[in-house]
Design a protein around this nucleic acid. Sequence first.
DNA 1: GTACTATATAGGAGTAAATCCTATTTGTCA
DNA 2: TGACAAATAGGATTTACTCCTATATAGTAC
Lengths: 155, 155
Amino acid sequence: MIKENYTINSAELEKKTEWFIGKCREKGLKVTPQRLAIYRELMKTDEHPSAEMMYNKLRQDYPGISLDTVNRTLITLHEMGAANIVEGSGDSKRYDCNMDEHQHFKCIKCKKIYDFHHKPFDDIKLPPNINKKFKILRKTVYLEGICDICLEENE
Amino acid sequence: MIKENYTINSAELEKKTEWFIGKCREKGLKVTPQRLAIYRELMKTDEHPSAEMMYNKLRQDYPGISLDTVNRTLITLHEMGAANIVEGSGDSKRYDCNMDEHQHFKCIKCKKIYDFHHKPFDDIKLPPNINKKFKILRKTVYLEGICDICLEENE
DNA sequence: GTACTATATAGGAGTAAATCCTATTTGTCA
DNA sequence: TGACAAATAGGATTTACTCCTATATAGTAC
């Protein structure tokens, strides 16, 4: 259940590459060597790299690639639905001193954070192997999307 | 269930301040005017501020306060269990192109991110008022703690 | 294949957020 | 009330992007 030492086989890599090319075409995005390289490199790892980590890896095979391209492309991958940004990362740190059980919704447009409380979320049970392997200090249900105000403004 | 326009009354503010002072003493941390001011200011807002936002607010009453102190103190609050860092914020962006349903555990010490998959977490149901008010684009269960490797190193 | 055009890239400059450094100050406790 | 470890201010530095602009290139139209 905990996934480790993930390695993608080359058949899967090619299949996903085809899917990615289709997705680019569908969205009217050009299939550039850099985009392909970044997507393929991200598929080969399970270490949830940062842009900097990706840049250092990619430079070995593409010495001319720029950090800006890596940054831009990773965000493009995210926007086109080919990658995610891991929860505890991104944007600047935001603080909250309400220590009562509650959950957060974050608007990805205006960056506003809304509290809500749904009791069943306080009690979700972790699989036992997680508790055995790691010391869990925090367990949250986290939502992202567009808030009502931003939704209205878009029309 | 969605909490809005939160204002703390002064009785509650004083009660929490007392609790905070006790917590500082318990942890051997000095009760400085800056710490108190930062904690009290954070309690008065529900906007989940960044350090910069806090700094700008606090400067009105404490013209000499430094941004570094605000940053350090907010992290101290977090470490002593008096504040949280909201999930979609902090550290540099980390990417993941595995779009199959899965969850993340992040080690707060080594920053490594582990995938795991617990099927019941794929199906958690949101309260209907959330879906009505916001457009939900992402719904995740997110864990933080110390990984097995860092736990071992600490002994 | 050739030409066109909108998109993407490289590389450097600029910006935002956070951290580091060091002299000074200040809670805390003996 | 004095000693000292801890905390702060303020500036320097680092990190993590983001912006700018000239050049290059993928996709398309001929």
